[in-house]
Design a binder for these strands. Structure first.
Length: 360
RNA sequence: GUGGGUGUAGCUCAGCUGGCAGAGCACUGGGUUGUGAUCCCAGGUGUCGCGGGUUCAAGUCCCGUCACUCACCCCA
C-alpha cells in the first residue's frame, strides 16, 4: 500500500473545504487591496534561491528539494515565494511600469525539514509583494492587508510582532557589536557557531539559561541609523493610524537573509511549537541582487496550513455542507442521473434504491 | 540528525498485574417508515506495525526494526 511522502499533508473532505475557505479568505484580502495575481512555477533555477534567500540560511543550506533535470540543470522546488516573484518581475519588466508593483500569489512550497505539528515538507502560503516604493506607509499597508486576511477568517488569538533589522548602513556595525558581546559569554559549541553564522538567532534562544545570558545584549533597534530609525517610527505610527495592533519584539528572527528594516510576524499560541502563522518584511536589496533595478520591496507570506490550524483551534470555521439537497429515488434509476441544479445536489445514485422504492 | 510518546476493526479507541480479541461510529444485508432520516434484527469487522526472544501460553514481558507523532533545531 502506498502512503503520501513523509511530512506531506492530504486535505480530504470535510477538512479540505475548510482549507479552501482559509486560502480564499487570505487571497481575497490581497485582491481587495488591489494586488494582482501571479501564477508562478513551483520549481526554479537553484541559483535563484541560493542568491535570493541567502547561502548561509538553513533554508538554502539544508532544506531545499533540489535535483538535476535532463539537461543537467540544477532545479529546486520553491522554498519560499519572494525570489520567484522578483524573478518574474524582472523577466517581464513589470518594474518599468508604474510603481509600486503589487502582486499576490498562492501555492505550495517545499522544505525538507523534520515534520512536526504545523510544519510540513509541502506547505501552502498566500503572499503579497509590493515593489518600488520606499515609503514606510507601504510597509504599514502590507502588514495591514495580512492582518485583514486573518481578521476576515475570524481569528483573534494572534498577535502581530514587529521590529527593524536595520540596513546595509547600520546592521554590519551592530552585528559586530553583538558578536563581540556573545563571544564573551559561556555558550555551548553549537550556540557559539550560531553566534558566528547568525548572531541574531542567539537572542531568540528558547532555553531560559541562554535567555538570561543574553538579557543585556545590545539590540538592533537601539543601533539603527537615522534613516532606519525614522522609517521604523513612521511604520509604527501608520499602523496605529490604521488601527492595527502590534507589539515590538526586538529579538525577532527571520529565516531569510534578504530582510532589511521592517520585519514582522503574526504569532498564534494555539498551534504547538510552530507558532508563526505568517511573516514578512522589507527587502530593499533583493531586486538588485537578482539582477534587476535598485528597487525596494516589502511583502509577506501567510501559512495557509497553520492559519487553518489556528482557525480550528479558535473554533471560528463555519459549517461546511457538501450538499444542499439529497435526491431520493421513488423508483430505481435506469441510467446516469445528474442534476443541473444551481445548488449543490446529490442525485439518486445508479444501482441503488431506497428500501421504499425497492418495496413498491 | 537527537530525544519523548504512540502503533489493536475502515475511523476513534478499550484491553488492569501474561490465560479464547472488545466497544462506539462507519459499512453490508433484512425489517419498520411516503427520506438513503429515525428505530429494530443480523452480519465481514482483525498477519494485534514487522522480526526475533522468554514462557505450557505473548496484544500484554525483553531485544531489535520500521512507521507515525510531539519536541529540540528551524520556521509558514
Amino acid at each position: 500500500m502506498f502512503s503520501a511522502p513523509k511530512g506531506v499533508p492530504d486535505y480530504i473532505p470535510p477538512t479540505s473545504a475548510a482549507f479552501l475557505h482559509v486560502r480564499s479568505t487570505l487571497t481575497r484580502a490581497a485582491e481587495l487591496a488591489g494586488y494582482g495575481y501571479v501564477e508562478l512555477p513551483v520549481f526554479e533555477d537553484t541559483a535563484l534561491f541560493a542568491r535570493g534567500v541567502g547561502e548561509s540560511t538553513d533554508v538554502v543550506s539544508k532544506e531545499m528539494y533540489s535535483f538535476l533535470d535532463r539537461g543537467d540543470r540544477s532545479i529546486t522546488l520553491r522554498p519560499e515565494g519572494t525570489a520567484g516573484v522578483m524573478r518574474a518581475v524582472i523577466e517581464h519588466s513589470l518594474d518599468r511600469g508604474s510603481l509600486p508593483v503589487k502582486l499576490f500569489y498562492a501555492g505550495q512550497f517545499f522544505r525538507a525539514e523534520a515534520p512536526q505539528a504545523g510544519r510540513y515538507r509541502q506547505f501552502h502560503q498566500v503572499g503579497i509583494e509590493a515593489i518600488g516604493i520606499d515609503d514606510p506607509a507601504l510597509d504599514a499597508e502590507v502588514i495591514a492587508v495580512g492582518d485583514a486576511g486573518f481578521r476576515a477568517l475570524g481569528l483573534t488569538g494572534y498577535r502581530l510582532e514587529i521590529t527593524s533589522l536595520g540596513d546595509a548602513n547600520c546592521r554590519p556595525a551592530y552585528r559586530a557589536l553583538l558578536q563581540a558581546f556573545l563571544a564573551k559569554l559561556p555558550l555551548d559549541e553549537p550556540t557559539r557557531q550560531r553566534a558566528e553564522l547568525n548572531p541574531l538567532r542567539v537572542l531568540d534562544d528558547k532555553r531560559p539559561e541562554v535567555r538570561e545570558l543574553v538579557a543585556e545584549a545590545p539590540l538592533m533597534v537601539d543601533h539603527l541609523c537615522d534613516d532606519c530609525r525614522a522609517h521604523y517610527e513612521l511604520v509604527k505610527a501608520y499602523l496605529t493610524e490604521l488601527g492595527v495592533k502590534f507589539v515590538e519584539n526586538p529579538r525577532m528572527v527571520r529565516g531569510l537573509d534578504y530582510y532589511t528594516k521592517t520585519t514582522f510576524e503574526f504569532v498564534h499560541d494555539g498551534l504547538g511549537a510552530q507558532s508563526g502563522i505568517g511573516g514578512g518584511g522589507r527587502y530593499d536589496g533583493l531586486m538588485a541582487q537578482l539582477g534587476g533595478q535598485e528597487l525596494s520591496g516589502v511583502g509577506y507570506g501567510l501559512g495557509v496550513d497553520r492559519a487553518l490550524l489556528a482557525a480550528q483551534a479558535e473554533g471560528v470555521l463555519p459549517e461546511f455542507s457538501r450538499v444542499d439537497v439529497i435526491g431520493v429515488p421513488l423508483a430505481r434509476p435506469r441510467g446516469p442521473v445528474w442534476s443541473r441544479s444551481p445548488v449543490s445536489c446529490v442525485p439518486p445514485a445508479c444501482g441503488r434504491t431506497s428500501s421504499t422504492a425497492a418495496g413498491r
